[in-house]
Each structure stands twice: as C-alpha cells, then as structure tokens.
Design a protein around this nucleic acid. Structure first.
Lengths: 127, 127
DNA sequence: TTCGATGTTTTACGAACATCGAACAAAGCG
DNA sequence: CGCTTTGTTCGATGTTCGTAAAACATCGAA
C-alpha cells in the first residue's frame, strides 16, 4: 500500500550508530544513498536497481528505519530524501566520510536513476 | 591455537567499505575499536567483555579481516592494534567520525580494559 | 464502484551471523 | 616429554538478513 504504516521516521535521538552502520553495510543501500546524496528528493519510480520491487522496498525501509532517509507520500507516488542535516547533527562528519568513501570506490553502482523522468509504462499524452 | 592461520590482514586496496561498515555494525566490535582508538597495542588478555573467549576471538577476527586491526603474536600472547593510518589513507575521515559518534553515544561500553594488568586467575606469588 | 498503477506486507527460504562449549594447537615451563 | 597457558577452530543452535513471489492496500481515473 502507499500508506506507509510502518514508516517510523526516528527522531534524532533515536538514531543509533550501529543501526546506521548496519544499514550501510549493504552495497545496494549505499548506492541508494549516493543517489540521494545531493539532497534532492527522488521518486520511487526513478530508482533503478537489479532487484524486485519488494526487495527494493525492503531496503528503503531499512534506510528509513535507521533514520537515514525520509519518505513522503504524494498521491500514489512515494518520494525519498536523504536526512542530511539530521545526520550531520547526530553524527557529525559521518555521512560525508561514508559518501566520500563510497564515491571513491564506486560502491553500489548497480543502483541508478532512470534517465527518463517518466517511469516505464507511463502513457504520455499522445495527442 | 596461538598461531593465527586465518590471520589475513588485508592490504589497503583490499579493504572494502561495506565490510568495514558491517564490522562496525556490532556494539561489541565498536567497543573494542574504542579501546584501541588511542593507537596503543593491547593484549588479548587485557580485553574484558561479557562474552565467551571463542566469541571474542570471533569478533577480533571480523575486525582483523575487515582491515580494522592488526594482530601480532608474541610467545603465547596476542596483541591487537588499530590500523589508524591505513584506514585514514583508505577512507579519510571515516574512522574519526565513527569513533567520535561511538564516544558520544558510549557505544560498546560493555567492553573494557582490565584495570589490573594481570589476567584473572593468574596466581600471583603469595609468599 | 470497478479498474489500473504504485508500493507495502506477508510468507518462505537459504545464507550469514552471534553465541557458546568443547576440542585443538602452539609456546613456554618444569 | 608432559603440563599449563593462550587463543583458535569446530560443531551446534537460534537469530537476523537478503531475496522474491504473491497477496494486499491506497490513490486516481473511468
């Protein structure tokens, strides 16, 4: 469902280091984080990964529950955003260091953004 | 055995971000890292944790295999040391950020150093 | 209200992990 | 050569994780 029942967005104080580290111990999730690293909000449909949608949903939930991302719902669509400022406040320098490391090693490059902003199967107005 | 057969100390280039993150997703291991954070070499017997020695050995191996620590053997004893410089070279700023975060949250406080340099059970000269 | 699109949750399963006790191995001592 | 000390490795066990298929829930449109 689009209603994210379990969408616990932990408060700053609820974010734990070990949970953050665990969330970032998977290349897919690091790749997702890299895509979100510019702080811009991204649509679920923009995310491309060699995974089933249920698995992708799972990874996004792990990131969300760890406090790394925020999920917003708009109509049928979902949008994800990195919680940059919150993380910087909670664990200063950590996110930057991880992103720098991830970029230098190209971790999670399997994850990408759809080049076409439209999700596949979207019927654009033909007339 | 004291001979650490599986003691793979990965080269700089072999250290991966996700393996490092995975290694640090456990409070015990973060606690061990904190104890080693001053860069001084510590004896196995100095380490106190609410774990069986086999489990402690396991955690130390995870840290070693991830490239976070180096293990040296001297006689019957083993000594562990944090690979500060290597990590700083491989992933600049990462270790410092993690240690700062771990300290601010007191992660892994269950792990400590023996106050008495003698391991427990050591029979000191009684006469 | 029925249908289609979009994600989420459930369920299931193999792999990986944390843990412990016991067996083992190497170094040093007597 | 035995015995002790010091860790490591080997099962065994229960838990968590990554993955996908399928069922479900919600929104928007017809």
């Amino acid at each position: 469902m689009v209603v994210v029942r379990d969408a616990r967005h932990p408060d700053l104080g609820e974010i734990t280091l070990t949970e953050v580290m665990a969330a970032l111990s998977d290349p897919i999730r690091v790749g997702l984080l890299r895509l979100l690293s510019d702080g811009r909000e991204r649509g679920w449909g923009e995310l491309r990964a060699p995974l089933s949608k249920s698995t992708l949903s799972h990874h996004l939930r792990v990131l969300r529950n760890a406090g790394l991302t925020r999920t917003r719902q708009e109509g049928t669509r979902c949008y994800v955003q990195l919680r940059r400022d919150d993380l910087q406040a909670r664990f200063p320098g950590l996110l930057d260091a991880v992103l720098a490391a991830a970029n230098s090693d190209d971790v999670g490059s399997q994850v990408s953004l759809a080049t076409d902003p439209q999700p596949p199967g979207v019927v654009r107005a033909t007339g």
